[in-house]
Computed example of a mutant assay.
Amino acid sequence: MTSRAAVMAIDVGGSGIRGAFQSADARGSADVARTEYELDAAYTHTDLADTITGATTTAITLQPPATTLTAIAISSRGVASLVAQPHALAQQLAHTTGCPVTIVADAVAAHEGCLGGMPGIVSAVGTGCITLGTNTNGSLIRAGGWGPLYDDHGSGFWIGAQALSRAVRFAEEIPTPHAEPHALLHAAEARFGAVDDWPAAIYPHGDGVSRIAAFAATVAELAASGDSAAREIVDEAAEHVAAAIISCARRGAATRVALTGGVARSQVFCDAVERAVLAQAHLLSDPESVQWHRSTGTPLDGALILAHRTAQQTVTTHPGLAWSSSPTRR
């Protein structure tokens, strides 16, 4: 039986681990059939590097018959901060699997999935916020994504934190230049209890950032209903995201633009970002060059595209975002 060349992609996400095989001839086309699978939670370890290693080892056992694996691409949340040496992990996996391996941050795979591998700019707006741009050379251009302590402007956490901050100052009758957040205060009390109870509801659980970020959906709903205080926050968040998009474009990224992530499910937020980008487009050499792209592509789709590039040796690496290694030839 003749063996067919295939590539493998894995996406280690917050809700599970998914993977896919596809013929190497597909070159990342979404129109070519692929074999998808989900890995059981038993393969998830406390250590992210162990999770990635275990998922890869297990996935290979699911390889379709009569195929030869030519490349692997792995997308993972937290890989830059939770894996001590991502490049060393890629080297280890390349050695054990015998084929080239690329490991990327989930934002990179989301970018590729959103744009179908085309150059452009994607803002991933969820709990955090990172904007990545690419040009025709495949180079990665980054804006943001440095975490909640000093960045992630416009993210779900930023929106939730702004809402709570303005609500608590309003409750304490501290004057601010913002619209009075009556509805935000009531919504926050419904979610977290009385203002005095907020610290206990948020801080001791180890997931305070996520808890605050989850409140962003409520803020967006209030904004959509016409609440002026919530709308102010959403508009300010949109201006931050738009500034990151414009930054990537000014540094050479193609101006095909898309939004992804949990916050981007809000139409009022997406509309606000589009308005903000239009308002800031005068900073570009061609203000009319921005083209908005709608896509349902997933990080797994993006990982498959990167797996094909890995096989073709055309994948682009980037410190903190993408690492690639080939097996050592003896």
Rank of each mutant, 00 (worst) to 15 (best):
A107R: 03
Q85W: 02
V101Y: 00
V108G: 05
A171D: 13
T68P: 02
A26K: 06
S75R: 08
S123R: 03
L222Y: 10
S15G: 01
L93P: 09
C99R: 00
P64L: 15
E172W: 02
D301W: 08
H182E: 04
L93V: 00
P177S: 07
M8I: 08
A41F: 02
L185I: 05
L184G: 15
A109C: 08
R4H: 05
A33N: 06
G78L: 06
G13L: 07
Q313A: 10
G113E: 14
D151Q: 03
V12N: 03
H318F: 06
V122W: 02
W323N: 10
D11A: 07
I103E: 00
D271C: 13
P319G: 13
A109M: 10
I245R: 11
H293N: 11
V101A: 03
N135Q: 03
A190T: 14
A230E: 03
G98C: 10
L259M: 15
A258L: 07
H293F: 13
G160E: 03
G206S: 05
H293I: 13
Y43K: 13
S324W: 06
S210F: 01
G16F: 00
G128W: 04
L48I: 13
A243H: 14
P86Q: 01
P327A: 06
I74P: 00
F192P: 04
V195E: 07
G226Y: 04
A143H: 05
T296Y: 14
G28L: 11
A94Q: 12
Y43C: 14
S75P: 06
W146G: 12
Y203V: 12
T260L: 09
Y43W: 11
L300P: 01
A214H: 01
H282R: 10
G128Y: 09
V241C: 11
S266L: 08
Q291A: 01
V290I: 08
S29Q: 15
T316P: 00
G116T: 09
T56Y: 00
H95P: 07
D151H: 05
R4D: 10
P199D: 07
G252Q: 10
Q22R: 08
S210A: 10
F192C: 08
V168C: 09
C99K: 01
S225C: 12
D106I: 08
E221F: 15
A242V: 04
W198P: 06
Y150A: 09
A230H: 03
F21A: 12
E189N: 09
E239I: 06
A258V: 02
E172P: 06
A33K: 12
S210P: 00
P175H: 02
D271Y: 14
S225W: 10
T260I: 12
V209A: 01
A171F: 11
S289T: 12
T218Q: 15
A224F: 01
M1G: 15
D25S: 11
A59Y: 07
A90R: 12
